[in-house]
């Protein structure tokens, strides 16, 4: 619905093309040609599949402790692909299940910041004046903290848990989306078709949802994809500092901090969870870059 409205409204003001191809289709074509972006998408897909089918892929559960046996801190082998940790648990299984946590936190936190950020950004951009000043100053304040420090402080207030880490990550990313939407709203507001719509007496809410939002979807998708990458790192960082996931959840950052004591004895307990973080984040970054090039060449540096 919105997309078609968008296209119809845009057609008159853009130079007529030979064939009216949807901008989304066009973006898809250019995305497909971008090798790195495709690789990134595959990496992300791989981890999504890993998360969905974890019970079928992982040979063990997440917490099958084998304390007295000789299963503790075993090096990688055909039985334990990634070795075992100090509880005798299979690191491979835990890394596989860990993808569920990281992806879940990444998606949810970013969706949270998009919803709140967009709301604030639209209000600020559309209504302007003092509302804009107040909201923009709020964004400035949030941005004046180094983000991880702010997240630590928020978790310190709320108490350490995965849910609170997610909330903290959502909060620190709000201004990024807020500012983005605000600037889009401001620029869209200037465009002729909006002025026309206003002149015809269209309601504010209608203008917002039918014209401003569709125009902002592309940058949100791009920014959102990249933000998932950051959110995953931030969640791991909080987990690493003991402010995220609770035991026995196999959150990658927490696995690293639990295994830190075994850096000399059993480096594999540190190597694989870290590698999983790098790969997932890399996937989202590549995908985000590709989306940016395809959807919104203006944002390219």
């Amino acid at each position: 619905m919105e997309l078609s409205t968008n296209k119809e409204m845009q057609v008159p003001i853009e130079p007529a093309e030979e064939k009216a191809v949807s901008p989304w289709l066009e973006a898809w074509r250019s995305f497909r040609k971008n090798k790195l972006a495709v690789i990134g998408t595959f990496i992300v897909l791989f981890f999504v599949l890993l998360a969905i089918f974890a019970p079928y892929i992982a040979p063990e559960g997440i917490n099958e402790q084998k304390l007295t046996t000789s299963d503790r801190l075993q090096a990688p082998s055909s039985e334990y692909w990634f070795g075992t940790d100090d509880f005798g648990r299979d690191v491979f299984s835990r890394v596989v299940y860990g993808s569920r946590i990281s992806l879940w936190v990444g998606f949810l936190a970013v969706i949270g910041s998009i919803v709140i950020g967009c709301l604030l950004g639209i209000v600020a951009g559309y209504y302007g004046k003092w509302v804009d000043s107040v909201i923009s100053r709020f964004f400035d304040i949030l941005l004046a903290f180094p983000s991880i420090l702010l997240a630590i402080a928020i978790v310190a207030v709320l108490g350490p848990s995965l849910r609170n880490a997610l909330i903290a990550i959502a909060i620190i990313n709000i201004p990024n989306f807020g500012r983005l939407i605000r600037s889009r709203v401001l620029s869209v507001k200037q465009e002729e078709f909006i002025m026309a719509a206003k002149a015809v007496g269209m309601k504010n809410s209608r203008i917002l949802f039918h014209h401003v939002m569709p125009n902002s979807i592309a940058p949100i998708i791009v920014q959102g994809t990249l933000a998932i990458a950051t959110a995953i790192i931030e969640a791991a960082a909080l987990g690493f500092l003991g402010l995220g996931a609770e035991a026995p959840n196999p959150e990658w950052g927490k696995m690293l901090s639990d295994a830190r004591a075994f850096l000399t004895q059993a480096p594999w307990t540190l190597f694989f969870p870290g590698l999983a973080i790098v790969l997932t984040v890399l996937g989202f970054n590549l995908m985000g870059d590709g989306l940016r090039d395809a959807l919104d060449p203006r944002m390219k540096n």
């Binding site: 402790q65 509880f87 035991a247 026995p248």
Partner: peptide, 12 residues
Amino acid sequence: PEGQKVAEALQK
């Protein structure tokens, strides 16, 4: 020396 780990074992 490792409260978190002992807790995790007890939890199990």
